[in-house]
């Protein structure tokens, strides 16, 4: 079995966390070839991930911005040598891989959480309220891995780097601009600690309480969909079925009631702390430690005492 895994490259830099975890998932299926759409520096870094046997480098402006039409064309051109085509479930992979699958006339398996065998995979449906094991009859298996519960691959690899080329620009789409929020905080999906705020936080200004606690704990900031919809926090901070899925060592939910759609995004966290003034809030049913308190007094007290 041979696996072609699409490395996560954003802004010309390898996203090591997502790529390395995707390699861990892919290595269960066979020999891993990593496809890097980016500069040679990203390929060199990718080659150091243990478990990668070869890196294919596609250093072409057409592939630089995650444009699905161009990258899907590149991958289908390379697909002949592989039994599986994989990636981490990132916004780039979710955009590109279903297109690849349709071009190859196969189905896709999104958000795989467990490899049973080469054709059989477990994945969440209904926002994680059910887990389904499916067996595919397709010759080439195209899948994305949910990385929250995958371990990082070791470093110290020394894969060879080869150039790969495809048709380049399909002429269907073009990149205009990126508005990426730069932050010194850890990235949400790979952070060891995540502090999230919900509707109970009340306003965008008061959301600063959440960020302060996150900074105190050296963690990332998250938000419930209610907080995002109310304009308290940016959408890329959203944790849940329609946002990011996280599984940190410590997840602190503040002013979050615990809607099904939010729980789907964080219930695999190792330890969950919930602070909410409503003792009936469903979040307490999944929390390891629950505190019924007004967040406007409890959170400042925590920041002070930690």
């Amino acid at each position: 079995m041979a696996v072609l895994c699409l490395a996560e490259v954003v802004g010309g830099a390898l996203v090591l966390d997502a790529t390395s975890k995707a390699v861990t998932g892919s290595a269960q299926l066979g020999d891993v070839t990593l496809l890097v759409c980016g500069p040679a520096t990203a390929a060199e870094e990718a080659a150091k991930i243990s478990g990668v046997s070869k890196v294919l480098l596609a250093d072409d402006a057409a592939y630089a911005n995650g444009l699905a039409e161009n990258i899907a064309g590149l991958i289908t051109g390379l697909s002949g040598d592989f039994s599986h085509i994989t990636a981490a479930s990132t916004s780039i992979a979710k955009n590109v891989l279903p297109r690849v699958a349709a071009l190859l006339d196969v189905m896709i398996l999104s958000d795989v959480i467990e490899v049973i065998d080469a054709d059989t995979f477990k994945r969440p449906i209904y926002a994680g309220n059910a887990l389904q094991t499916v067996k595919t009859s397709d010759a080439i298996k195209v899948l994305t891995f949910r990385t929250a519960t995958l371990e990082l691959a070791a470093d110290g690899g020394s894969a060879t780097v080869e150039a790969a080329a495809g048709a380049g620009d399909a002429g269907l789409s073009s990149h205009i601009s990126d508005a990426v929020v730069s932050s010194d905080r850890p990235e949400l999906t790979s952070a060891g600690v995540v502090v999230s705020g919900g509707r109970g936080v009340g306003s965008e200004d008061d959301f600063a309480l959440i960020t302060s606690l996150a900074d105190k704990l050296g963690g990332a900031v998250g938000a419930s969909r209610a907080a995002v919809d109310s304009g308290f926090a940016a959408n890329d901070l959203q944790v849940g079925q329609t946002g990011k899925v996280v599984a940190p060592d410590l997840y602190v939910a503040i002013g979050i009631s615990g809607a099904i759609q939010h729980l789907a995004g964080m219930k695999d966290s190792k330890v969950i702390v919930a602070i909410n003034k409503d003792e009936e809030a469903p979040i307490f049913q999944v929390a390891d430690f629950g505190l019924v308190a007004d967040l406007f007094s409890a959170v400042p007290e925590m920041i002070e005492k930690l």
């Binding site: 995650g66 269907l172 789409s173 990126d178 990426v180 959408n235 890329d236």
Partner: peptide, 13 residues
């Protein structure tokens, strides 16, 4: 588009 880490603007024919 909503992408990991922010927003991306593209043009499609």
């Amino acid at each position: 588009r909503e992408v990991d880490g922010g927003l991306q603007t593209i043009s499609v024919k």
